[in-house]
């Protein structure tokens, strides 16, 4: 059986592109390809990953320029047809700027870049990205961002809740969700959300950095594995 092709978009300034390629390549039967920002060709990819980093330098606002790139036009269209899209960190920011997800990410509560291990828990395990997780199990997955403070107006948050679109929340080692376990000030401790159709997920934590025990955790692997099993 031919390998499933998964596209990893490379914007100028992406810096988790190689990391994401590395994580994807560790799964049997999956072939990652790099999708250049200036191209319109998705190269037959069955799923798209938007990696972390600083697309176009992010001097204006994270992800604000990337959404105008030729490849994103194709990604948005494909997502509309149901193509699975996973945006990690800067990729999440790009998804929000592109309108594939609702809300916005502003500067962290304490105005500083923050890189550390965080605990998150999947609160919706029925998505194509989380089917291999147990509801409310505690995952150790790191964050590294300056603009990860998720915000949406109350009516949007209510709608996200109503439609089970909140997928990950920051918590402590025991799964407790509190202000102290919220690293960046995100409303409702939101770490990741999915679109209404369920095929577009954005999250701030980096599953590709938690895909090998050697790096401290492999809790992120099942996110990729959940997705790849659907393809």
């Amino acid at each position: 059986m031919a390998d499933i092709t998964v596209g990893v978009v490379v914007f100028p300034g992406s810096n988790c592109d190689h990391d994401t390629m590395h994580a994807v390549a560790s799964f049997d039967g999956v072939k990652p390809v790099m999708l250049w920002h200036g191209s319109h060709d998705l190269q037959g990819a069955k799923a798209i990953l938007l990696p972390g980093g600083f697309s176009y330098g992010d001097y204006l606002r994270a992800g604000s320029i990337a959404r105008f790139s030729p490849i994103m036009k194709e990604v948005v269209e494909a997502a509309g047809r149901g193509m699975p899209v996973l945006g990690i960190c800067n990729g999440f920011q790009v998804l929000l700027e592109s309108g594939l997800l609702e809300g916005a990410l502003s500067k962290n509560r304490d105005k500083k870049f923050l890189c550390c291990d965080t605990f998150i828990k999947p609160v919706n395990c029925s998505t194509m990205f989380t089917s291999l997780y147990q509801q409310d199990e505690v995952l150790s997955i790191p964050i590294a961002h300056g603009e990860g403070n998720y915000f949406a107006p109350p009516e949007t948050v209510a709608s996200l809740l109503e439609h089970d679109q909140i997928v990950f929340r920051y918590c402590d080692a025991n799964g407790k969700v509190t202000d102290e376990t919220n690293p960046n000030g995100s409303v409702n401790n939101i770490a990741g959300i999915v679109n209404r159709a369920g095929n577009v997920l954005g999250l701030m934590p980096h599953p590709e950095r938690a895909s090998e025990k050697l790096l401290g955790s492999d809790d992120g692997r099942r996110m990729f594995e959940s997705l790849f099993r659907q393809l």
Binding site: N15, K112, F113
Partner: peptide
């Protein structure tokens, strides 16, 4: 050190401070 991304490139073997010297694996 929390203001520094210490993990990008996914080679940083242990979190900062868990070894006396920083350790980077070679893929």
């Amino acid at each position: 050190y929390r203001q520094y991304d210490s993990m990008v490139q996914t080679n940083t073997v242990t979190p900062v401070g868990h070894t006396d010297a920083a350790v980077i694996r070679i893929k």
